[in-house]
Amino acid sequence: MEFGFAIAIGGLYAAGFYMMLRRNIVKFILGLSLLGHGANLLIFTAAGLTRANAPLTAGGSGTVMADPVPQALILTAIVIGFGVTAYMLVLGGRVSQLSQADDVDALRESERGAE
């Protein structure tokens, strides 16, 4: 299964990279999202996959449980990622509104004047 996951992670990263290199601002932000998914899945996989029970200690000592640490890390990362993506969406929306364009290449105003 890990092998399949490794491919999926590669796919997520590849799609993320590709989308981030697009000129459309929405695609670009979706790309960032994909990249985040890739990173989360990478942590999840790298720490070891087990089809085990959720890490709830009520089940007694005998049961095999999934590693809770990567779960906690990913949860933190997901939430942070959500905050950042939300901000990024608002920012992207404002920029495209101000620049009257959905084309990332049009955003060159701030770097004019160095001629």
Binding site: A6, G10, L12, Y13, A14, G16, L42, T45
Partner: peptide, 17 residues
């Protein structure tokens, strides 16, 4: 480029595993 990058990450994951 993206596919190459994806392959790098896949291999990295496998090595990490």
């Amino acid at each position: 480029f993206a596919v190459t990058g994806g392959v790098v990450m896949t291999v990295l994951t496998l090595v990490a595993l």
